[in-house]
Nucleic acid binder design. Structure first.
Ligand SMILES: [Mn+2]
Ligand SMILES: [Mn+2]
Ligand SMILES: [Mn+2]
Ligand SMILES: [Mn+2]
Lengths: 216, 216
DNA sequence: TAATAAATTTAGACTTATCTAAATATTATT
DNA sequence: AATAATATTTAGATAAGTCTAAATTTATTA
């Protein structure tokens, strides 16, 4: 088995190398709230265990077994988030920190039964796909609101920023997962977007539009 | 907050000093699967934090704040065991190790909501009382089967040994929580007990009778 | 009560995961 | 291509939690 620290590194490497990119020491240090020198030490250890491909100075990617572990942790994280929201009635902005702890509960039998208990949900409370017990999932095809033009629209299916502040702001504006939106206007000056949600006119900044994902 | 190791020590001290006794270094080492010298180190740390009363060579007991923490961990342990059995359909002999991990999930809000979700259960799958959110609980008054005479009986409400082997054995004999039993005979030679469970005659050793708890 | 046994603590070492500061490698800029 | 800036690694420390072996204290028993 792997330590908690190792699991967190694998997960971060996974998230940083999603689009085929290679993760850098500094990116990992930033993401993990640690120092570059600490990252280097851990990369050596993970390379020894053949969980990552590491070339000094050249960044890092996951091996097949490293990726399997990372996806399993993400599966646990998202299933626990789903549990917290759907069964214990937490709000979507309250669950991330708890799931950060719960994702390290080791039993796979436990998580498979939890999955079954909840009816094999496909997406977590933030719209992120939940890998099945074989690590398989397909991300749905989403676009940012900022990429839309007037009269474009769709269903809100995800967020790019998972911070409490952002999620609470969306809540207040009624911009939650599943809601249908239509762009009615775009301010030229600062690219603010004006849109309709349930017949209500809402204005959001370009920053917000950039982090709000809608199905196409 | 306290570390995982600290929490485990506090829990062990609590269990060892239940009947007003004082826990010894060696007892703790045995219980925690560690060495006496490691225990001494940790006791110093816990004493510094004023979570225990520690006099070198004289053993250890919990302070009020130490006890509060210990009871909270036990609350979490038992609620998670209840969840695993009642919601995820695990058997009573399968849940202890998982609960050993889950009891360290820090959020109290989470555990309070879990408690509510399950309808505020009073006892865990092994018959042990679950402390409420204020740390209050009352142990029910139980006697071992070995303390009974012929024609005595009652409802199985707990076990003293929580090992998988013992719990599986009880399962096989139909001696599970809630079952009504009546002693029909006691073998003089080795104090084996013959009893009736659901009209079935079952013979158990003195060892087993000693670890099976029945309401009076 | 003096010797012996048992329990406990101390001393010194090791592992994991961190850190700061210094050294080195890579990349960007003149 | 040489220099400067940036990124990364190495060196050396530190804290938590553990270990073995040795020293010390307490309990037992002759
Ligand atoms: Mn999350
Ligand atoms: Mn999520
Ligand atoms: Mn248990
Ligand atoms: Mn239990």
């Amino acid at each position: 088995m792997n330590t908690l620290a190792e699991e967190n590194y694998l997960k971060s490497i996974y998230h940083l190398s999603l689009n085929g990119a290679i993760a850098s020491t500094n990116q990992l240090a930033a993401q993990l709230n640690t120092k570059a020198s600490s990252v280097t030490d851990m990369l050596k250890k993970l390379a020894d265990k053949e969980l990552i491909n590491y070339t000094p100075y050249q960044g890092v990617s996951l091996t097949t077994s490293g990726e399997k572990i990372a996806i399993n942790i993400i599966r646990k994280h998202r299933l626990w988030e789903y549990f917290l929201v759907e069964k214990l009635n937490f709000k979507w902005d309250e669950v991330h920190e708890m799931a950060e702890e719960m994702e390290h509960i080791s039993s796979n039998e436990l998580i498979d039964r939890l999955d079954k208990f909840m009816g094999y949900p496909k997406y977590d409370p933030h719209g992120d796909p939940i890998p099945d017990c074989n690590g398989l999932f397909k991300a749905h095809n989403l676009k940012t609101v900022s990429s839309f033009g007037i009269n474009d629209g769709g269903v809100i299916c995800g967020v790019r920023d998972h911070s409490t502040a952002f999620l609470q702001y969306l809540d207040k504006q009624g911009l939650t997962i599943g809601k249908n939106i239509t762009i009615t206007d775009i301010i030229e000056f600062d690219h603010s977007v004006i849109l309709l949600v349930e017949n209500k006119k809402v204005q959001i900044s370009r920053e917000v539009a950039n982090n709000l994902l809608v199905s196409i």
